[in-house]
């Protein structure tokens, strides 16, 4: 039997790479992380997620609004520890200096 495709719809799914056990909604706006904060229209890169050192996650716009308010005192709204963005793990290979690259080629 021969099958001929006349048309197809490609479907893709994406998810943020969040710490294990994290909620699936932002505690501030209560919208899913894969959705947008209340101010944004399009999810994804336009409305990114911020992960704290305490592993609590929020839409970047939601948490920055909170951290800019006086009453926040810079604390995580979940655990009240000082909220600092978790620094991404260092790249596996050390970066080469431009000079080194030139010498190697």
């Amino acid at each position: 039997m021969k099958v001929t495709f006349t048309a197809y719809h490609a479907v893709a799914e994406w998810k943020w790479d969040l710490p294990e056990d994290s909620d699936d909604t932002c505690g501030i706006c209560r919208v899913q992380f894969e959705g947008t904060c209340a101010k944004c229209k399009y999810p994804g890169d336009d409305c990114p997620i911020m992960i704290g050192e305490c592993t609590h996650c929020f839409h970047m716009h939601c948490i920055s609004d909170w951290l800019h308010s006086e009453s926040s005192q810079g604390k995580c709204p979940m655990c009240r520890q000082p909220f600092n963005q978790k620094v991404a793990e260092a790249p596996a290979a050390p970066l080469r200096t431009p000079g080194g690259v030139a010498a190697g080629s």
């Binding site: 505690g27 926040s72 709204p77």
Partner: peptide, 9 residues
Amino acid sequence: REDWKPVLN
């Protein structure tokens, strides 16, 4: 008051 945080409902 002082203990309000946005994750409260």
